[in-house]
């Protein structure tokens, strides 16, 4: 299969020593196996996430996203923009829809972009990494690279909000999207069927500003994973991952629970299943160790088929 190339939008949390740095590590390893070339958009900037609404105007937020589109169109012409972060994807895509749908807004944005020597031509498409996996490869193709099936691990597929709503992945239902479970099964893992907290909100940015209220959400998400006998949670979203993993000790203190559930990324599962090392899969980036996944990662197998 020919090498696939994308204009990569890694996002703030994926950067070195940022809160989702291990997500990026595993995405890079996964893409190497799939012969995908991700070229970061040169000098990309923050999407402004979903929380910067109070002091900013709609135009200023769209301009921030349009800058990334213009940079991608200039330096990586013809390549789709691919985001790995849910918020990056959502905000970029929302901006794109607004700008492409209004000649006036587009003109305003370009008037502002001119100050940075840029112009958005409404060409670049915005996609999420899981869309690339599902639409450009497909589950069968993704499964062909598996050398270490994730036998004996049960995953609660926690999709969360923004890699689901409002745009959806692969036309699936908002209430019960299946793509994450299908990815788990593709790499030989067991997906916890009927995991009812699949699309529950972890609190998002309010995990910082309203920790008590958000931790109630996180507690439900983790407890349901235990109820379904899951060994770990898997998610496509960097903020879901961080929120659901790092506050478990805090929740235990608050509620007297004993939560200790690892939270991983789909890209880590795929990297391990594709024969990558624990380091390549970013498994050294967890507060709660995904022991069963680490065990498979260190197991030596004959990778020659």
């Amino acid at each position: 299969m020919a090498k696939k190339e994308y204009a990569f939008y890694p996002g703030c949390s994926s950067q070195l020593k940022a809160s989702a740095s291990n997500y990026l590590v595993s995405v890079n390893a996964m893409c190497q196996t799939l012969d995908v070339k991700l070229t970061p958009i040169p000098d990309w900037n923050c999407c402004t996430a979903s929380i910067a609404y109070a002091p900013s105007s709609e135009l200023s937020r769209h301009v921030m996203n349009a800058r990334n589109f213009a940079l991608a169109e200039t330096h990586l012409p013809g390549q789709d923009i691919v985001a790995t972060c849910a918020a990056c994807w959502l905000n970029a895509r929302e901006s794109k829809e607004k700008l492409d749908g209004s000649a006036q807004l587009l003109a305003d944005a370009n008037e502002a972009l001119k100050e940075a020597g840029l112009k958005y031509q409404a060409k670049a498409e915005v996609r999420h990494m899981v869309e690339v996996l599902i639409e450009d490869f497909g589950y069968d193709e993704l499964g062909k690279h598996v050398v270490k099936p994730l036998d004996g691990i049960k995953f609660a597929g926690y999709v969360g909000c923004q890699t689901n709503r409002p745009f959806g992945i692969d036309g699936e239902s908002f209430e019960n999207p299946k793509y994450l479970d299908k990815l788990v099964e593709t790499v030989g893992g067991e997906a916890a069927a009927g995991y009812e907290q699949k699309v529950t909100c972890c609190g998002g940015a309010l995990a910082f500003s309203e920790p008590e209220k958000s931790q109630k959400q996180i507690k439900d998400i983790v407890e349901a994973a235990y109820d379904h006998g899951a060994d770990m949670i898997v998610t496509p979203c960097p903020l879901c991952q961080a929120n659901v993993e790092v506050y478990q000790a805090d929740i235990n203190k608050r509620y007297g629970t004993k939560l200790n559930m690892p939270v991983t990324y789909y890209s880590q599962l795929m990297t391990v299943a594709y024969g990558g090392t624990a380091k390549q899969a970013g498994l050294d980036g967890h507060i709660i160790q995904p022991k069963k996944l680490q065990d498979i990662a260190v197991r030596v197998v004959n990778t020659k088929k």
């Binding site: 703030c12 900037n45 923050c46 402004t48 996430a49 929380i51 910067a52 609404y53 109070a54 002091p55 900013s56 921030m64 940015a205 309010l206 910082f208 500003s209 309203e210």
Partner: peptide, 14 residues
């Protein structure tokens, strides 16, 4: 608190 966070986020990221 969320209003404060919103203001800080915008200032921080821009």
């Amino acid at each position: 608190p969320t209003r404060d966070f919103s203001i800080q986020f915008w200032e921080n990221c821009t």
